[in-house]
Each structure stands twice: as C-alpha cells, then as structure tokens.
Design a protein around this nucleic acid. Sequence first.
DNA 1: CTCCGTCATGTATGCGCATACATCAGTTCA
DNA 2: TGAACTGATGTATGCGCATACATGACGGAG
Lengths: 346, 346
Amino acid sequence: MGDSDAARRRPGLPASAAVTMTTVGRMAGVSQVTVSRALSDPSKVSPETLARIHEAIRATGYVPNALAGALASRRSNLIAALVPSFTNIVYSSLLHGFSEIMRENGYQIMLSETGHDPEREQALVEALLSRRPDGVLLTGVHHAPGTRRMLIGSGIPVVEIWDISETPIDCCVGFSHAATGQAAAEFAVKAGYRRAATVTAGDARAIRRRDSFVQTFHRMTGAEVPAVDFQPGTATLEQGRAALVDLLDRQGFMAGVVFCSSDQFAHGLLTEAAARGLRVPDQIAVIGFGDQDFAAHTHPALTTIRVDRAVLGEAAAGALLSRFAEHTPGPSVVDVGFQLIQRGSA
Amino acid sequence: MGDSDAARRRPGLPASAAVTMTTVGRMAGVSQVTVSRALSDPSKVSPETLARIHEAIRATGYVPNALAGALASRRSNLIAALVPSFTNIVYSSLLHGFSEIMRENGYQIMLSETGHDPEREQALVEALLSRRPDGVLLTGVHHAPGTRRMLIGSGIPVVEIWDISETPIDCCVGFSHAATGQAAAEFAVKAGYRRAATVTAGDARAIRRRDSFVQTFHRMTGAEVPAVDFQPGTATLEQGRAALVDLLDRQGFMAGVVFCSSDQFAHGLLTEAAARGLRVPDQIAVIGFGDQDFAAHTHPALTTIRVDRAVLGEAAAGALLSRFAEHTPGPSVVDVGFQLIQRGSA
DNA sequence: CTCCGTCATGTATGCGCATACATCAGTTCA
DNA sequence: TGAACTGATGTATGCGCATACATGACGGAG
C-alpha cells in the first residue's frame, strides 16, 4: 500500500497530502473555481487554460472528491437498490440492465439484500437515506409502513419493480402476478389437464401467482389443487425434486400438471421425473416461471412464463431518469407484461 | 411524492427545508455539536439532554447526512466492489457473505460489473475512487496497469478475491486455479479414464484451470485433450449441451471424461447425454466446477470442485476490516483451498 | 478554602466542492 | 464613440458535519 499519503486517510491530522482543486489550480495558475469549471463544463474555459489544468491534473494525480461535490450540489449521483437476494438470478439479471443504464448516466448503485424481510428492508432504507441517494429502487410493492413513510417524506424518486400496484410510493414497473397464475391455469385446462398441483416458494408474489392459478383451475375444472410450499428464498433444483417426491409419494398426485413458482423448481421436477423414468408431459407435466437461460434446453424443454427482465430493469432505470429530469415524470405504473412459452414439459 | 420539501432537492435554492443537526439542536436547546455527540457517542451527553435530542429527532424526522459526515471525518464507510457479473451465481454468492459482514460493520457496498473487461474495470475504479471508498474489492488478480497504479496511489485497502497471487495490490483471498485443474486431472487418471476433453468459458481463471488439467492429464497418460471454448461470461446449460454435441459429433470424442469450467456446462453435458440416452459415467463422464446448489441433485449427481464461496466472501470482508483497524493488517495472501467432490458423474 | 481533575457543553474551524455574483478586457453595433 | 454585450476568470459563501480546543460548574484532595 502507498503509505506516502497516509495522512490523507488519518482523521484529525492536517490533510497536507490531499490533492484538491485548489492544488491543481495553483499549479495551473488559476483559481479553484476554474478547475471546477474545466471539469464540469470545459466550454466555459479557454483552450489554453484547459490544457494547463489537464496537465496539472495529470502531474498531481488529482482525483475529484465526489463526496464534497455531492454535499455542495445536493446531488449525490447515487442510487440505493434493494433486492431480496443477490443470488436469485431473477433479480440479478434485472439489476444488470438497471445498473448499466444508471451507470451510463453517471449514477452509482448502492446495493443491498433484504432477504424477503420487510423489517430488514426498512432498516436498510433508513441507513441508505442517510447517504442521500438521488433515487431508490425497491423490489415489490408491499413494504413496512415505516418504509413507505420515510421514502415519501424524503421526497426522493422511488421505483418499485417486479410487481404493480394501484398505489405506488412513487412509480412502479412490473407485471400482474395474479394474471400469470390465471394464464397458466387457463393454458393447462385448455391443454386438457384435469389435475393440477403447485410448488411455491413462499414470498408474497409467488403466493399471489399460486393462489390465482389454484382459483382459476378450480373454477374451470372443479378440481382441488394439492400444494407443496417452501420458505421464501432462492428456489433450488433440490427442492423441486423433493417436491415431486412429496406430491407423488405422499400426496398421491399423478398424471397432472404442476405449476412451479420458479424454473429451478420445475427443473427439479423434470430431474426427479427422469430419475424415476416418468414420461414428461404424459405422466407428469410441468410449468415453470421465469424462462431462465436453461429453460429452453432442459430435457424436455420447459413450458414457462417469461418476463423480460432486461426490459424491466431498463424501464425501471428510465422511470427514475425521467423523474430526475423533472419535466416529464412519465407514467406512474408500467406493466411490462409476460408471455407463456409453450415447450415440451406441459 | 412529497413536494413539500422539494427545495431540499433543488440546487441553488436556499435549503430552508433541510433538517440538520443545527435544527435538531435548536429544538432541543443545545448546540449542533451536542447533537453530533449524542449520535456518535451518547455516553458523552447527559441522559436528560439525550432524551430531549431524541425527541427533537423524532419530531423533525431528522435523517443524518452521511455525505457531510464523510467529508468532515474523511471516512465514507463505503466499499467499492467489482465483480465480472451479477448474474453469475459464483460471484453473487460470494458477495452475499461479503456484504453481510461489511454491512454489520456499518459499510455500504457500491457494486459494479466489469464484464470480464480490464479496461472497463479500470474506468470503474477511476469513477469509484472519486467516491472515496474506504476499501475496494476486486475480482481476480490480473488488472490493467492503470488500475493497479491508481489503487496503490490511493492508499486505500484493496482485497482481490477468487484467485491468489504472489504480488497482490494489497491482499488477496482465493485459491489456486492451477491446483484445481491438476487435482481434477489426477482424479480422472486415478479413476481410470484415459481420454479427456475440456469445455471452458474463456476467462483468465477458467483457462488456467483448463491448461493445468490438460497438462497434467497429458503428462500422466500421453493423451491429447480436445477442447470446446466459449467466450468469457456466464456459462449456460445450453452451451454445455452444444459442447457435448460438438465433442461427440464433430471431434469424434467418446468414452472419456470432460472437465468443465462451470457446473452449468456440466449440467448441460448431462442433459445432452440423457437426451441421447448415453450412460453417465460409462459412455461419458463429467466433472464440473463450483459445486453449485444443483450439483448434488442432478441425475446422476455431479462430480465437481467445491470452493466455499461463503467463507471466501467472509474472509475477504475480514481482510478489509483488519486493515481498517490498522494494528494487525493480517496476512496478505489467504488460500481458502478447494475440494474435489466425487459423486456419480465421474 | 484553593488547586486541579472531570463532566457537560459550547465555539471555531475546515473538509472539497458548486453556486451566485462580481470583475474586467475585448468586442459589436448604433 | 460610448453603451451594451460576451467571454474568461475571480471572490465569497455555505453545504452539514466532525474535530480540536475552550469554558464553566462541580467536587474531592491537600
């Protein structure tokens, strides 16, 4: 490590080593404010001065202090983003598109995991607000009361994603989970299935999909729909296998379609079916959710529900950016929709 | 949105609406510095004063401004973290443990993706340094020259993960990729395989694993080792299937073991083998890398190389924290090792 | 009683930058 | 030829907080 400038990092000592705009300006023979202008709007500085300033920046190794800039300008160019989990590909693929666009516009992302816990989400929001983010991204539309209050009180633009609501904190970009469940049930009935089951990770949105599926399927066929439920969190192939074991061996389920809250579950069902030599979809049919990268390439390929996560992430970024622009706040609720992709598994 | 305090967010206007420590202090009948003390070290303030201050905070809805605090104290409590990809579970699971520990110690993570591109990594480091992070997490030990220079010059603690090096920028926590390739080859030879192939995503570390595997296998058996290579990036099941198609149908490979740079690839090979009715491991054997959550539950279960990513992430956090403490910088190179897990696929 | 240490609090200052406003030379046009 | 304007730069100020240092009240030791 460079100890030469340790003083810069040692609180309380004079920051003699710190290179600031004043240092650069002195070397270039101009004042601090001219350096500031050279960096933020070069057209306001004469070409010769600009050249001297850049030379001084190079010579000193000057690095702007965005903290000071943010304090003075009241714009931090930081975005706080909260997702249930980093390791769930559904959220991380969304963040990919989101953060890319925000970064291109000069924003940095502060990312945290809520673990599907509203109280933890609230604690994180409280901590993050002290960093004065210019915008906040939240996953889902149901939050602790304090979360909502703090965010509204802060006056900071907020975008809620992965769900839609009539009463967003500020705006939301997502799709109707109930509609996906209904679409899956209608598809299953139309395809001739008269028995169905569900495998669900217990987060609020997955439960909404399941309930809508069950209700629709029951209404259309009169059938009861057995269920296997897991705790909220990342769904695994292992759980999917266990779920099929449970359905077949304990609940006596057979010759029907299983609606899963995640492609991982669905993949697990396919794997267990293969291990047992069951024919898919004849002896067991599977519908996944997410259209993850493997879904088209399982054996047989997975019938699933696709949500364009890249588009969703980008739309969320766009919603925030339009709010920063202040003129055209854009719509408050964006429904990006979904597609049921029929492949071989159902 | 709350427009009531829009002034706070509008640069150039007087920030009349902003609630600061001075506001709180005025209401509680004390000075700003007493409020500061009440929040940072309550024992320095009398209990009655403390109570009045907390009441004032509650009444005003005061939210500390960490930007101002960071500027004054020269400690931002921010960590810049760079990973190749959010969507690659290998990195995101690592971040999970890392960010959890950092958060518990009061640090926020600023996360960015490099996309396996050193130039992009350098641009991100440059942008991130302006936020004055207290620490930096980098993935891998090979960086653009400018990246190294900037980081050393900054004097900020840096931890490089997922690899080890004799000459870290500051410190590194990882394992030897060459050793994993060698271990896989030795295992394969010992298990009786005399033919081998590789399927690799072309990032620097995966290539190192592959090269070491090929070299060791060739040295021990004299066999040539055909290869399928992909671009760096997230490995997919689809690519794994395609790789087996290529090996079998184009390269005439058969009855041997395939060393994959990722469990996703390996899963793809298993899937393609199942679709073709090939017996695993007799007709085709597969070794993965990563021991991802599905690895133990594929059919057959995957023989793979496990790296404890949670431990790695936590060790990286520990390395940074010990550097912040200044007294005991801790070791510069931590090798967390790996395990070859034998299951059914090889 | 006086001296000194301790506790609770206050005053002064500056972190590094962006913004508003001022200055001053060199135009341009009536 | 002088008023108005433009371009390039400077001065003054404060964002909200943490830190160093100062103050005053109090209490026990000498």
